[in-house]
């Protein structure tokens, strides 16, 4: 099966049972339909997104699994961070509905054709999507929460632990 795909697409073998295919975003639906018809990579197990803020792209990996669950194929699509939009895969894989909804909430990616992109885990969220790397989590927390007294002594204690251990050792040797 993988031989058939290798004939038509540039597939890279990343590991013994892991293959990778990099494609353009406008050919996504076309290529994935072809893969699901012509090979036994029939299950979409997850959509993983990486935020490459340096290159100003999102890298989305559609991870497909065979019927026997023995091989994985990663189909990578790179899209711009600014106008991030992709066609939905609802017609091919029904389970993509939840995954796309999650990605829409966490990265702000618009999936054209998926009409369930409303609040999922975050309710009443008015900031920029929290898993984008320009979102400063610590600044947000400091602005919106006040901490209980006692939290401020939460410092790096490695040096102090080292000093105490040395002190204990000294006193032990002295005896």
């Amino acid at each position: 099966m993988i031989e058939f795909l290798k004939k038509h697409y540039e597939i890279v073998e990343k590991a013994p049972r892991l293959y990778k295919l990099q494609i353009e975003s406008d050919k996504l639906v076309e290529i994935l339909s072809s893969v699901s018809i012509n090979s036994n990579f029939i299950t979409l197990s997850q959509i993983a997104c990486t935020d490459w803020i340096e290159d100003e792209v999102f890298a989305l990996n559609y991870i497909l699994t065979t019927k026997e669950r023995d091989k994985n194929l990663m189909v990578e699509v790179r899209i711009s961070r600014v106008h991030c939009s992709l066609p939905t895969l609802l017609n091919l894989y029904p389970q993509a509905q939840v995954m796309e909804r999650d990605l829409h909430e966490m990265y702000g990616i618009n999936f054209r054709g998926n009409d369930t992109l409303y609040d999922f885990a975050l309710e009443n969220w008015n900031e920029i999507p929290p898993l984008r790397r320009e979102f400063d989590t610590l600044a947000y927390v400091n602005e919106h929460f006040d901490f209980r007294i006692g939290r401020e002594d939460n410092k790096d204690v490695k040096a102090e632990v080292k000093r105490r251990k040395a002190q204990a050792k000294e006193s032990k040797d002295g005896k």
Partner: peptide, 8 residues
């Protein structure tokens, strides 16, 4: 403690 979505 530094989560954006969890109460403190």
């Amino acid at each position: 403690w530094d989560s954006y979505n969890t109460i403190k």
